[in-house]
Nucleic acid binder design. Sequence first.
DNA 1: ATTAATGCAAAGCTTTTGCATGCCA
DNA 2: TGGCATGCAAAAGCTTTGCATTAAT
Lengths: 125, 125
Amino acid sequence: MKLKRTKTRELVYKELKKSQLPLSAAQLFSNLENASLTLSSIYRTLNAYLKNNIILKQTDSNGVSLYSLNKEEHKHFLICKTCESKITLDYCPYHLINEELKTKHGFEIDEHNVVLYGTCKNCTD
Amino acid sequence: MKLKRTKTRELVYKELKKSQLPLSAAQLFSNLENASLTLSSIYRTLNAYLKNNIILKQTDSNGVSLYSLNKEEHKHFLICKTCESKITLDYCPYHLINEELKTKHGFEIDEHNVVLYGTCKNCTD
DNA sequence: ATTAATGCAAAGCTTTTGCATGCCA
DNA sequence: TGGCATGCAAAAGCTTTGCATTAAT
């Protein structure tokens, strides 16, 4: 299955590239509103990208899907659920456990959260 | 807000206790069908339990919410997305990264996946 | 008696799909 | 041209909510 280069595809790709954090379909739709795309074609584009491993999908705590480019050098973020502050990590905190699970169980984790939610230092009571 | 002890509450709690893996609202509903509960009261019960930190919520890769008792000695599972085999861990693989994020950034992760998805040894090509 | 929980039905959101049309290779 | 992509509208999950009723403290 070869992907055609179309307006929707280009714009969605650029928008994901531009964004640090993963985006939902609705956010993409709203960010690109003046390009008059439809939500359904955004979803179809995202699903096509997923099948081709061009992007990653994760789910936030409300069950909404978030999409981000599947680049090697991805960043990780800690987001405080209280004050919404964002900490950007300069390394991948999953390396530790992924390696351990691989070594001990031969198991390869392939779902990988780019955003971790919790409570920051200031908001800890 | 104090929680009353009702039929729905009791049954949902017991069902979660009985189950090893986290359950969706629909699974609870179906497992308890002869008790004639409604889905909405199951959801309300789950949300009440969540507010009181009695249960944990996580989201599977289809965006469906899964609920499990918030017990200290919880188990972790690795589930292979190819053959659906299940590996039960006897330790919490997140300890490593949670400690590191706590030490380095003072950040406390409070979303915690009990089930990790990936590819098992046999299904790795 | 007060307050919270339930049932039912309806609505809300996110995501998917059918079908006719339009666009890319 | 042939096949994939799009738009639109409708439908399909999952989850929440309003309101009247019932049950728990």
